[in-house]
Design a protein around this nucleic acid. Structure first.
Lengths: 156, 156
DNA sequence: AGTGAAAAGCACTCGTT
DNA sequence: AACGAGTGCTTTTCACT
């Protein structure tokens, strides 16, 4: 009954180096990279197309300092949810504009939600909306005082 | 004694639209965008340079499906840390290759850590290393069974 | 699957307003 | 601060291997 159809993929040195460089700077030019790597630009273009098609690369984005845009408030919310409705609840919560991450976890709680807000009112409204959901048995909210690190990149 | 020198910045419609488009696709061309927006490519180029200089844009990256690269294990770790050493501890933990996020929170715990691993052994080693740190009074680890959502982009 | 070559597209700079 | 135009890069395609 798992819906997880992900599989690990063969990646050679070229794919790996390409991925590392795009993680470092998504706007870098394939041409310059191709010179460094002693392959043709066309090859890198093909490799990148394949990485995107296979879903290894989900897209390219700008990393933004949200505090400078007024999103000064983050929250880590843990919730215990009625098992029958967990998947539905997660889908619901993941579609929210304020939510950057949703993790299905094991332990005292079932879901961990990372969310961002412009002010206390917005966070309050989000939490109130959440709490009136009858699928939720219990929540624990940690208000984030300081985002020490937030970077989707890990060393691959 | 705050080290938070972040400030909110004036962003007009052009900045905002540029940012939204780069969040959507960081490899998009400024020229095409400039046509959509009825400004010159040179203006967009200047705007983007300014956004980067001001630190609103921290960089550009590829969004990667880490499960497809073998990082099938994530963990949400909460820690209660001796107050005197909190900042030092956070700096330490944030520099780890396996850590994508570190949040300074208020409540029962002081720090929330989001981390990724290839296997149970690596997670185990990370946790053991963490637990032998005398600054830590208490931890709570939630093993992530499923990453429902993980996307640094919020609607701005 | 990788390549070179060519055409189309693009970034970046600078002088002008 | 925004622009237009020019120069040199870059992507993308495609026929060939």
């Amino acid at each position: 009954m798992s819906t997880n159809n992900k599989r690990n993929v063969d990646m050679d040195t070229v794919d790996r180096k390409l991925l590392i460089e795009l993680l470092r700077d998504a706007r870098t030019s394939l041409r310059r990279l191709s010179e460094e790597m002693n392959v043709s630009p066309a090859t890198l273009h093909n490799r990148l197309t394949r990485l995107v098609q296979e879903g290894i690369v989900r897209g390219f984005t700008a990393l933004v300092d949200y505090t400078k845009l007024g999103y000064s408030l983050s929250a880590v919310i843990m919730a215990k949810v009625d098992g029958k409705h967990l998947t539905e609840f997660e889908r619901e919560i993941a579609s929210s504009d304020n939510v950057v991450a949703v993790y299905d976890v094991v332990g005292e709680y079932d879901v961990v939600i990372i969310s961002k807000f412009k002010n206390v009112e917005d966070l309050d409204a989000f939490l109130k909306q959440l709490l009136k959901n009858p699928k939720i048995e219990r929540t624990y909210t940690s208000i984030v005082l300081n985002v020490v690190k937030e970077d989707p990149r890990i060393k691959i």
